[in-house]
Amino acid sequence: MSGQPRCVQVLNGALAEIFETRDDVILLGEDLLDPYGGAFKVSEGLSDRWPERVLTTPISEASLFGVAAGMALRGRRPILEIMFGDFIALGFDQIVNGISKFREMFDDQVAVPLVVRTPMGGRRGYGPTHSQSLEKLLMGVPGIVVVATSECHDLRALLVSAVDDDRPVFLIENKLMYGRPNRRPVGGYLDELRVVETETRYPALTFSGSDFEGGAATIVTYGGMLPIVLEAATELILEHEVFCEVVALSQLLPLDLEPVVESVARTGACVTAEEGGLTGGVGAEIAARVQERSWGDLRRPVQRVAAHDGVIPAARELENQALPGVRDVIDAVAAVAGVRI
C-alpha cells in the first residue's frame, strides 16, 4: 500500500499528461507558478514545463469563474483551480447565472467545457472560512456536473474524464486526501473488503465485507468522508460482526443513484455520510431519493451523518466535535440496522 503514489502526485501527473495530450487546455488560478506550484502543490512543476499554459491570476474569484466560462464558450478547455473550496461562494453568480445556464438558454448552440478543481474539507485547523465542504451548495444548480474525488478512486481517470467532458465539471478535491496514498483496489479487493466499480464516466465504488451477500446497512458517502466510513465499517465488522456495504460515489450531480438503490436492495437500510453541514446537504438529497425509489426495501428511515450546522472551529477538539467521525457513522448504522452497539 505504501508503494502507491500520493493523491497529489496522481493529480499532478494527470495534469501533466493532459497538457501533453491536449493543446486546448489552460490551467488558471492563484499562486500556481513554480517553485510554489499552488497552495496544495497540485500544479507543481507545470509552469516550468509549460509557462504559457499556466496562468497565475489576481485574487479575483468572482470573475475567474466567468473568465473560464468565456474561454470554454470559445473552444478552450480551462481548468480553474480555486485555492480553497470555501471561495466558490465568490463565484456563485457566474456559476448559477452563466456557467450552468449558457448551454440550455442558448438553445444547445454552445458548450461550456470547463473544469473547476477545488479542495474542500476540514480537520486541519484552518477555521470557519477555510474548512467547509460546500459541494452541497452546487447540488441545486442544474446544468453542472459535481464530481467528488476520494483516495480510493482512480484520480487520474477522474481528472482526465472531467477535462474531456463537454459539460462544466466541478471536481471536488480534499485537503487531507492530497497527502495520502491513492489506495486503489487490487484484484477487486481493498484490504479485506471486496470492491466493485461501476463502468460509468465518474464511477462509484461499492465495498462489501461479506461478498455482497447482504448486510446490515448501506453507507453512502464520498470524498473526504470515505476513509472515516471505511474505518467505521471495518470496526463494525471486527468488533461487532455487523457487515455493511459502503457506496463511495464520485458523481454527486446529476446524482448517481443506481449503485445506491442496488446496494439498498441487498441491505434494506441506508445511512448517508458527508463532511458538509446537515441541513440541505448531499445526504438530504440522497435520502429523499432513496426513500422514493427503495421504500419497499427499507426497514427503517434513512439516517444522515453530517457536520453540525454551524461554524467549523479552528481549535482541534472543537473542530473534531463539529465534524462527523467514526463514532457518528457507527451510531447511525446501529440505528438503521436496529442493533445495539
Binding site: S63, G66, V67, A69, L73, G75, R76, D93, F106, V110
Partner: peptide, 27 residues
C-alpha cells in the same frame, strides 16, 4: 446568442465572460 453574439441579463456578470472570450481568442 447567434454566431459570435451573446447577451446575458445579470449586470456586470458579462464582463468576466467577455474577458475569458478575449483571452481564448488571443490564445
Amino acid at each position: 446568442h447567434r454566431g459570435n453574439f451573446y447577451s446575458n441579463g445579470v449586470q456586470g456578470s458579462i464582463v468576466p465572460v467577455s474577458t475569458g472570450i478575449a483571452l481564448a481568442e488571443k490564445e
